[in-house]
Nucleic acid binder design. Sequence first.
DNA 1: TGTACATCAGTGAACGCGCGTTCACTGATGTAC
DNA 2: TGTACATCAGTGAACGCGCGTTCACTGATGTAC
Lengths: 196, 196
Amino acid sequence: MSSKKPHHHGNLRAALIDAGVALIAEGGPEALSIRGVAARAGVSHAAPAHHFPSLAHLRGAIVAEGFRRFTQAMEEEIAAGSDAPRDRVVGAGRGYQRFARENPGLFHLMWGGNKCADDPEIDAELREAAGASFEVLRQVCAPITPGGAGAEGNELFVWALAHGLASLTLAGFGQELVPGSAEDRFEAVLPPLKFG
Amino acid sequence: MSSKKPHHHGNLRAALIDAGVALIAEGGPEALSIRGVAARAGVSHAAPAHHFPSLAHLRGAIVAEGFRRFTQAMEEEIAAGSDAPRDRVVGAGRGYQRFARENPGLFHLMWGGNKCADDPEIDAELREAAGASFEVLRQVCAPITPGGAGAEGNELFVWALAHGLASLTLAGFGQELVPGSAEDRFEAVLPPLKFG
DNA sequence: TGTACATCAGTGAACGCGCGTTCACTGATGTAC
DNA sequence: TGTACATCAGTGAACGCGCGTTCACTGATGTAC
């Protein structure tokens, strides 16, 4: 093993994103800064400029990474349950709750409206990552019998219920009404659904 | 009318809170600062210290004011509808959506987990204001027939659905699934409820 | 109705801090020949 | 395989900015007598 500290980092871009995720996990979205991620990644505070033109670009890349992990959390919980249509909806909802609980700062950043870069490359990455998350929701909701607002109404209903429950839980509300983990609370409040 | 600028403001505390609400409306929760509210209220940046010991105290007072306006929005929408149990639930949900749409920055600040003061006085004010909001929800949900998760389950269900829909709408999602205003979307996705 | 005086609510200067960004630079990498 | 050289990815100093907070101060208010 070489004891010389290499001048080139190797994959600083990914390391900066990981450092940003860690900073946000510890201090919330406000804790994200160029200088902070640089220090955490062990480089000078000017180094990130070679990978992200601005803080907004870094934020966009981190949000995209958040959506990828969010998709993964939902897919894992869906896979952990049965293939029954309702269990797949419950799985997505459980993944939603788990991701929010495990990544509260990231969750807020993803949905909180903080400014991200307008850069076309970052924007495309973000759009693709978020689109994959929405696609998971769409697929588990597709088998639900369309109601008054159509199949899209079902998707928005499940999405809003899962999102609202996660947000309220992060804000500290809900436990006093329905005890248990956030994941279990989603199952508890999900009303009967018709399929087919 | 006196043309002399009075040394004493009269009710600077209230003016600072209003200025803070305006700043947040224009630039989001991040835009709130001691110096900003002072400038907007037309006083020196040191003046707020006589009314709020720290930024966290000012933030707490503003969040409390937000909850008072939130309660008012729900009560107005409930009063605008019929006394039928379902219409009262719909009214609360419509008020939820309207408040979020009209006060997006305040909405994020209220639920976003930004640090507020631990000061007992501010804390009591905040607790009372938020408690009044929750009480409105509790009362409109009380007539719903208790399901598996009890009456509290119904309340959490309606609360999460309304909150999630408002959050998604502010983040720019939902319109493509169910067209119309956020208020109308709440009615559209609210499933049948049993009362009595 | 006066007057002395304590208290209150402002001002303006100053502090140190962390921030994003820029700049000239330097060492490492990788490629053309 | 060697060498010249363009390019890349870092460094460290410096910039200006807005921030929260503190401080000595001053003018206005209101109260005791």
